[in-house]
Design a protein around this nucleic acid. Structure first.
Lengths: 351, 351
DNA sequence: TCAATAAACTGAAACGTTACAGATTGCCAT
DNA sequence: ATGGCAATCTGTAACGTTTCAGTTTATTGA
């Protein structure tokens, strides 16, 4: 009846970190039983389960990730794929914070997989899928016909996109409603008597470029305003490029009296360009801009802003990927967030 | 003489991804030989080595990370530990980009380990060390007497700090010379006739708080200027807090005529506060600020700036950790980067 | 009483890798 | 010839986990 217990790890448990073997030795059970007791497997006695879990908690048992991963193929890793030279900064940290926030309460780790201008955007995706380095992936800079999404769908890799695709395939996404943003922006400008409007758009190629353009065009015709072409630059251009281009346009006789800008950093450049041309914000021209943190009103109180919350995007994307991994229907993990109202600066109460 | 070759994986190699067994089957060698041939082990024939490596390249063999990790304990992971609610945004993305840049050419992955206001900063460190989830760690918000550095040193976990410690322990770091920054800033202001200076400092507790304060004080006495106390706020305070505090101070009769600011976002708040008080930048007061991207001159051309390169910090920190892991002496992996000159706005050539 | 069944537990194998401790061969000096 | 010795190669075990296929014990039904 007495069992031989000479498990190497059981005896030497003091030095290394505890494993299932350690727990098995301490409880007098087999490692199989311990393993099953820790997850709430059906065929384990209620008392045994409690006992094992108690001991595990006491000695601070943590499953070895490599062991689990090797055996099951599950990595407990979510990868955030980032373009290292194009992504605008404030985006990234907020998204990471949002993702982290969600993953913190799970066994998942977040790994950042970069790719640079020089590389094919597919490369990191292929790497992740081929090596099975992650259980789920989050991508941004989503395109209407996105080869990355198609590839992951084909290969059964759960993922979520920041921004929608448009290829008839269903997958989780989080998107800001840029159609509504552009419409609201134009309406606001029109209500202020601005009727010759220019749009600083997202980079062509990304899905929300189209959304923004359509919203802009729809609202233009709704309010009877006209567009001043400004499509030789996008928010992916440098500050200097946007600035000089803005100054050029503002020196024409048929210059815009209103701008819609899809990014805060770009808005700084637009304003600088306006002022380079000797014009004044709020008098000669108004600007509506998206921003992700509340800084533009400090820059120029005349600016009109719409807030986009990237931290929310991050946590939403993380939850979606986890949901898909957990078996939820990808179609149920899609979210289009409404834009907030266009906000004008309201001075602090006690000035 | 003929060998039995019924390796399961050898035969079924078509479906899964290739392993050492697959390679062994294809080359007719043993898995040990293949393993050693892939790293450049000494006792493998030159031709065999070449043959194995050729086949491996051809079929796209990639070592299974879980296998390596389980066997060797090496994770091939570097962890960047981040405070999720305090870190100022642009920092984070730049550092991540810098780190990624370096790790991209190595087998290392970058994992982001967050901790939030509510948590003990030691918690993520303990987690990483106890679970052996990373081969190296990068931390920021470094303190003169930093328990995290001490703990990792005690437990043999290679790491690098963004900012120095001051407890007589030697470890890799990357730091910006904030002493020199503060001195140069004060000198510049003095040279413009500003002699009543206020400092918006880093948060007390962090090492570079001391560096900045000392540099500020040293230069004050050097140029014979005096300090207007401004230490009820730091760059960790909110924009609104800094703004209102600045406005208060600027309404006093003995108000500062110059500011030194340790962060760009905070500088926006200072300028707003100055203007709230009805004063004008460049006329009534000048401000020297650090910035990590070239935006402040757009905000107000009168601002004086010093650039700090966080991308460089990131790549430097990554290289240091890898160096330590690779056996280099930690003392040889320390870098204090000189501040660039204080820069005034120079208008674009063709305006 | 005995088989059948359920409940609770268990050992062994496998995931892919590396390290240990041999094997096998050819070649040289004796 | 033969012992010795490099130079190459090899099988086995182990890392920690989960799964498969049992095994043991107690309980039930007749």
């Amino acid at each position: 009846m007495d069992r031989q217990r000479t498990d190497k790890n059981g005896e030497t448990s003091a030095q290394g970190r505890p494993t299932l073997k350690t727990l098995a030795f301490m409880t007098g059970l087999g490692v199989t039983t311990v393993s099953r007791a820790l997850k709430d497997a059906p065929e384990i006695g209620a008392e045994t389960r409690r006992r094992v879990q108690l001991v595990a908690k006491q000695i601070g048992y943590r499953p070895n990730r490599a062991g689990v991963r090797l055996r099951t193929g599950r990595t407990n890793v979510i990868s955030l794929v980032l373009n290292t030279d194009r992504e605008i900064m404030s985006f990234v940290s907020d998204i990471i914070y949002g993702v982290s926030e969600v993953l913190a309460e799970t066994p998942y780790h977040l790994i950042v997989t970069p790719y640079s201008r020089s590389q094919d955007p597919m490369e990191p995706i292929r790497y992740l899928v081929e090596t099975g380095s992650a259980d789920g992936v989050i991508i941004s800079r989503t395109q209407p016909n996105d080869p990355r999404a198609r590839y992951m769908l084909e290969h059964g890799m759960p993922f979520a996109t920041h921004g929608r695709t448009d290829m008839g395939l269903v997958h989780p996404y989080h998107d800001f409603d840029n159609h509504v943003f552009a419409m609201e922006a134009v309406r606001r400008l029109a209500s202020m008597g601005r009727h010759k409007l220019a749009l600083l758009s997202p980079p062509p190629g990304l899905t929300y470029y189209g959304h923004t353009l359509n919203g802009f065009a729809d609202a233009l015709s709704e309010v009877g305003a006209s567009e001043i072409p400004f499509n030789t630059v996008s928010i992916d251009h440098t500050i200097e490029q946007i600035r000089t281009r803005t100054a050029q346009v503002m020196r024409r006789e048929n210059r815009p009296d209103g701008f819609v800008s899809s990014a805060a950093a770009a808005t700084l450049a637009i304003v600088a360009g306006i002022e380079d041309a000797g014009l004044k914000l709020g008098r000669d021209v108004d600007v509506v801009s998206k921003q992700s943190s509340d800084l533009l009103h400090l820059f120029r109180p005349e600016l009109l802003v719409v807030n986009e919350n990237f931290r929310l995007a991050g946590s939403d994307l993380a939850r979606s990927v986890l949901g898909w991994i957990g078996g939820a229907a990808p179609g149920s993990l899609q979210r289009l967030v409404a834009t907030s109202e266009v906000q004008a600066f309201s001075p602090p109460v006690s000035v």
